[in-house]
Design a protein around this nucleic acid. Structure first.
Lengths: 234, 234
DNA sequence: ACTTGTTGCGACCACTCGGTCACCTTACAT
DNA sequence: ATGTAAGGTGACCGAGTGGTCGCAACAAGT
C-alpha cells in the first residue's frame, strides 16, 4: 500500500504466448526465434537422455540453453509442450510412413506387392530414425514410464505405432503371408524385438553396423531362432 | 543461547540403523519389524507403479504406509535401499534359476537335454514371476530409465538377466540348436519380444490366458512369423 | 522518429522434498 | 522392577522448483 512509483497503466499484459509470431519470415525476429527454440530443444534432449524426462528441471534446461527461465515460458507453456515439440518431426514422419504402408498393404493383391510395401516402409523409416536418433532413443527410454503430463506425448506416439503395426499385421495375415497366430501377440513380439535391439545399439552395448544388425533381426523375425525343420544340426 | 531445558546428556545416539536387529525371532519386536517393512514395501510398490520410481517421494510412501517419515529412515537409508529390498526376492530366484540353467546347458550332450534345460528354466521362472508380478511390472517399467541411484538396482538386475541370457544362447548355439546369427542380437531380440508381450499383458492391453500367450510367443520365437518354406499360403 | 507489441531477464513467491533431531514410548534382558 | 537400547514421531531446516512479474531492450510497421 505504499505509493511507490507504479508503472505506466497500459493495457493489461497478455501473459500468454502470442498466437502468431510476428515479423517477416527470415527477419531478425524469426531467425532469433528459431535459434532460441533450437537452444532449448537441444539442451532438453541432452539432459532428458541423461536424467529422464521427468527428472530434468526447467532450470537445468535453461542453464543448458544459456537462457533465462522467463524466456523459456515465452516459448513453451511447460515441459509437456517442450516434449511435444521435440517429438513433432519424428511423429509426423513416422505417422505418414505408417499410413502409406497401410494403404499400400490394403491394396496389395499378391505376395510381391505385400513384401514391397514392407520394404517401402523400411526405406521410408530408416532416414528419419537416423536423423532423429536422439528422439528415438528418448522414446525407447521413456516408452514404458507412467503416463505423466510430460510423458503423455511419448506414450501416445508409442500407442499409435503399436496400433498401426497391428493394422499392418492384420493386413499381412489376411493375405496369408503370416502364420495363424494372434495378431496382437505377433505385433508386440516383433516391435519388442526391434526396439530391444535398437535400444542396445543406441546404448552402445551392441556395436556393429546397423545394416547388419537389421538384416539379422529381419531374418530372426521372419524365420525364428531355430534351424529350419529337416535341416539337421551340423 | 536460551537456557531452555536441555535433554539428558546420555551417550551420543548412533543415528544409523542398528546393524543387528534385536529380540527373539517371532517376538513382538521381530513381528513388528516385519509388519513395518511390509507396509513400506507395499505402499512403495503401488506408488512406484503409478508414478515411477524417481517421481515417488518418501513422504508419499510414508503417507501410503501410514507411518511417519522418521520411521522410514529407521528401516531404510533412502530410496535406493528400499528399491533393493523390493527386488531382493525376485533377483535371488531369477539369478539362481538362470545359473542352474546355465550349468545344465553346459553339461547337455544332446538336443533333448538342451530343450529339457530350457523347459526347466521356464518352469522355475513361472511361479516366481507370478508371485512377484508387481515387481516384474516395475522392472519392465523402469528397465530403460537413466541409471539414477534408486534405479541402479533395477538396471543391474536387467543387465545380469541379459548376460545370463546371452550365455544360454551361446551354449545352445555351440550345440547347434540355433541358427548361425549373432548371439547378442538373438538374445536381445528374444528377451525384447518376451518383455514386450509381458508388458502389454500386465498393462491390460493384451487380455487372455498367460499360458496361451506364452505358447504363441514361444512358437513365434522358435519358428518366426512366416509360414514354413515350402508351405504355400492358403 | 515514434509507437507498439515481442522478447529476454532474473528477482521473487509459495511450496515441496529429503533428511535430521530431540523426545517419548515400548520391548527385552537382567 | 529397572535399565537400556530400539522404535515411532512430527516439527524443523536448507535446498531447490515451477511459475510470475515488472521492467528494459528491441524489432518492425507507420
Amino acid at each position: 500500500m505504499t505509493d511507490r512509483p507504479r508503472r505506466t497503466v497500459r493495457a493489461p499484459r497478455p501473459r500468454s504466448l502470442p498466437a502468431e509470431r510476428p515479423g517477416p519470415t527470415g527477419g531478425k525476429r524469426d531467425l532469433n526465434r528459431r535459434k532460441r527454440l533450437a537452444q532449448f530443444a537441444s539442451a532438453a534432449l541432452e539432459l532428458m537422455q541423461r536424467h529422464g524426462v521427468e527428472a530434468v528441471t526447467i532450470e537445468q534446461i535453461c542453464e543448458g540453453a544459456g537462457l533465462a527461465k522467463g524466456s523459456f515460458y515465452r516459448y513453451f507453456s511447460g515441459k509437456p509442450a517442450l516434449v511435444e515439440a521435440l517429438f513433432e518431426r519424428l511423429a509426423e514422419q513416422v505417422d505418414a510412413a505408417m499410413a502409406r504402408a497401410e494403404t499400400a498393404l490394403a491394396a496389395a493383391d499378391n505376395t510381391d506387392a505385400l513384401v514391397m510395401a514392407y520394404a517401402d516402409l523400411a526405406m521410408a523409416l530408416a532416414p528419419v530414425v537416423v536423423e532423429e536418433q536422439a528422439v528415438v532413443r528418448l522414446y525407447l527410454q521413456e516408452r514404458r514410464g507412467p503416463r505423466t503430463e510430460a510423458r503423455a506425448v511419448i506414450r501416445d506416439f508409442g500407442d499409435r505405432l503399436l496400433a498401426r503395426g497391428e493394422a499392418l499385421t492384420l493386413a499381412a495375415r489376411a493375405h496369408g503371408l503370416l502364420r495363424d497366430l494372434p495378431p496382437a501377440v505377433t505385433t508386440r513380439a516383433v516391435i519388442g524385438a526391434i526396439e530391444a535391439v535398437a535400444w542396445s545399439h543406441l546404448e552402445g552395448d551392441l556395436p556393429g553396423d546397423p545394416g547388419a544388425l537389421g538384416e539379422a533381426l529381419i531374418s530372426l523375425v521372419l524365420e525364428g531362432v531355430l534351424h529350419a525343420p529337416g535341416v539337421p544340426a551340423p
